[in-house]
Design a binder for these strands. Structure first.
Length: 670
DNA sequence: CAGTGAGCGAGCTTCCGCTTGACTT
């Protein structure tokens, strides 16, 4: 039976679109890119105008043959991949792979490129009626992006294998991510904590609840953060305050308001899920993917805060009917995407149907429920009225020479805060104060503080920092975090990213020899040039040459001169077999101890982290303490996939097992 | 959340950006 074929990138999106089109349409997904540069070689001919070699990865083979068959049967084909640079390239690669456009004269299949800017019935039906040709300039911009990333990554990585050790990697995105973490660590190392003291008074007016005021002036001189440097100085001031009388000398009030946040993008969702739920970027994306596939939310990889007008109306209707008109923003709020070079191929992340309250959705999975709640609240709040506050600042004289200051904040109208709360922002109430009021001193306090170094990045704050510089894309934020962890450049410590020695080594090598590539503005510069390709004002090969030729020259002149870094960590240990020094090396399965006498001496031993060592000790202690309760054999400590445990020594005859308490499961790897 | 059972390794690695399952290294 003849039909019209629509090709999209995501199967879940395909299912939605299928509903909006008639029964004479068939919708298939490409599952992302169907062709790419080969993994095992450069795949770019730098001597021949950067001609790329494209291959179909094994995973995509089946999809391509499915598409080919469907195209052959269809009487019209619509390439409806995402409306951005990558989507245009995917459309082109699909066309190439399935033989569209390359057919013999008279046998050409009718096909066109269509773009859905949001997934609504109206938009889909409208767009399908306006097919156009594939935009070759946009495809070329993508090819330039792809080829530059390949040339940079595959040229620099081997230098690291040679100079540091094998398996390392460098790239436009990951290397800047590591640089941010390394430079933050150096700031922390250079930071000198300074001691300072604050003086606070708990005061009350008559029978009011006590409130806190902070000392801000002494003898007409302002007390700033670091003014009081020692306890001695603090005590000298306090001695004059115990018996002073406290009088209100000024009360100022000011109304303020706060607007709601913009709807979620991938990066803001990851940040919020990190701070409110403590989730990693990867975890957040996995749960969001499930919600998306179940049709509960819109697409989760987006850089846009846009919500289509029909949905905005639905959100506003919901607010008006369930919360009341006063909670509705006076006009529809339209948010603008601030991110540099955002491509805005999708809407913001929002509930598919705003009227679906998180409690009425019947989600059985607790994580899905939590994430949906965040998304729903953020979306509804985005069309609600401002929150209004009354800020009060009171100046209180203590005796003749001292001024304290107290501030309060009172919610006049909760507005969007009614459904979207932040733990850190509560009310702080002062009693009704008037000038000349006499206050009672409840307690006088002086407290020691130290200035704090800049905090290490978390996954969420690092993603934010990258996004602000236009580096990386929604689909790569979480994988980039995995890469810099996998390579051992950084480790997670209490949820924060801390650089490892090899992270410092790689960063310093790249910075010293190829500073342009890991410059914070490198991506932005490339993006500007890609824009020139997209609007037809520059050739893509020229842009590639612009980046690659200088890099090639640098590699040719510098690579041999870079000193080999000793990456083996030294230890105090001597080899038990030949008494030569033992070092820590890196192999396929991570670190291991090895004898420096290699290859004559082949002594090795696995490297255990502190935690693993503790587990092992515990397991051994338990194993020594008793015998197998089932067969009386000796017990032994063993390491399994999930850490150390105690098992029967006569395994596999006896399968007795004992878990070690406090045993932490090893992180599951991708 | 329960489940788990070697010992190796030192030459074939790596990029970014699209998209989902297949998968035990």
């Amino acid at each position: 039976m003849a039909y019209k074929l629509v090709i999209v990138e995501s199967p879940a999106k395909g299912r939605t679109i299928e509903k909006y089109l008639g029964s004479d349409y068939r919708v298939l997904a490409s599952f992302g890119h169907v062709r790419d540069l080969p993994k095992g070689s450069m795949g770019v001919d730098t001597k021949k105008d950067y001609a790329p070699t494209y291959v179909t990865p094994p995973k995509a083979k089946k999809i391509v043959s499915t598409l080919k068959k469907a195209v052959a049967e269809a009487d019209k084909v619509f390439l409806a991949t995402d409306p951005d640079r990558e989507g245009e390239a995917i459309a082109w690669h699909v066309a190439q792979s399935v033989g569209l456009g390359g057919a013999k004269k008279g046998k050409e299949k009718e096909y066109g490129r269509v773009a859905f800017h949001s997934i609504t019935k109206e938009e889909v039906q409208n767009a399908i009626g306006k097919p156009r040709a594939i935009d070759v300039n946009l495809v070329n911009a993508q090819q330039a992006r792809r080829v530059i990333d390949r040339l940079v990554g595959y040229s620099l990585s081997p230098i690291l294998w040679k100079k540091i050790y094998k398996g390392l990697s460098a790239g436009r995105v990951q290397s800047v991510a590591v640089r941010l973490v390394v430079e933050r660590e150096r700031e922390r190392d250079a930071f000198k904590a300074e001691e300072y003291w604050t003086i606070e008074a708990d005061l009350k007016k008559g029978k009011s609840a006590p409130f806190t005021a902070i000392l801000t002036k002494v003898d007409g001189k302002a007390i700033e953060k670091l003014s009081i440097k020692s306890e001695k100085e603090a005590q000298a001031i306090i001695s004059g305050l115990e018996r002073a009388s406290y009088t209100v000398v000024d009360v100022a009030t000011k109304e303020s308001k706060r607007q709601p946040y913009a709807p979620f993008t991938t990066s803001t969702l990851q940040q919020e899920a990190s701070s409110k739920l403590g989730w990693s970027a990867r975890q957040t994306m996995q749960v969001a993917q499930r919600l998306y596939e179940a049709g509960k939310i819109t697409y989760m990889r987006t850089d846009s805060v846009f919500i289509n007008p029909a949905t905005i109306s639905a959100i506003r209707k919901y607010i008006q009917t369930t919360l009341g008109k006063e909670y509705l923003a006076s006009g529809a709020r339209i948010y603008k995407t601030k991110t540099k070079k955002a491509q805005e191929a999708h809407e913001a992340i929002r509930p598919s149907y705003p009227k679906n309250h998180p409690d009425s959705l019947g989600l059985s999975d607790a994580k899905e429920q939590k994430l949906y709640r965040l998304i729903w609240q953020r979306t509804i709040a985005s069309q609600m009225a401002d929150a209004k506050y009354l800020n009060t600042t009171a100046q209180i004289a203590a005796g003749k020479n001292y001024i304290f200051s107290a501030s309060g904040i009172k919610v006049l109208f909760a507005g969007w805060r009614k459904i979207y709360n932040n733990a850190t922002e509560g009310e702080k109430l002062l009693p009704e104060l008037q000038v000349k009021d006499i206050l009672d001193l409840v307690k006088l306090r002086h407290e020691q503080h130290f200035t704090q170094p800049p905090a290490r990045y978390s996954e969420a704050t690092l993603i934010k920092a990258l996004e602000e510089r236009g580096i990386g894309r929604p689909s790569t934020y979480a994988p980039t975090m995995a890469t810099i962890l996998d390579r051992g450049y950084v480790v997670k410590e209490a949820g924060r990213l801390k650089p490892e020695q090899v992270g410092f080594l790689v960063n310093d090598l790249l910075l010293a020899n190829f500073p342009e590539i890991i410059d914070y503005d490198f991506t932005a510069k490339i993006e500007n040039e890609l824009d020139d390709i997209a609007d037809g004002s520059r050739k893509w090969t020229e842009v590639v040459a612009n980046t690659y030729l200088p890099l090639e020259k640098q590699i040719a002149t510098k690579a041999d001169k870079i000193e080999r870094v000793k990456s083996e960590e030294e230890t105090d240990e001597k080899c038990p077999q030949c008494s030569k020094p033992i070092v820590i090396k890196r192999g396929k399965y991570g670190k291991f101890y090895a004898c420096t006498g290699f290859p004559e001496c082949r002594y090795t031993r696995p490297f255990l982290t502190e935690q693993q060592q503790k587990q092992k000790d515990k397991a051994e202690a338990v194993a020594r303490a008793k015998k197998c309760p089932e067969c009386q054999s000796l017990l032994v400590a063993r390491q399994g996939r999930f850490g150390w445990f105690v098992g029967c020594g006569s395994y596999p005859k006896c399968k007795y097992i004992e878990n070690i308490k406090g045993n932490v499961a090893k992180k599951a790897k991708a």
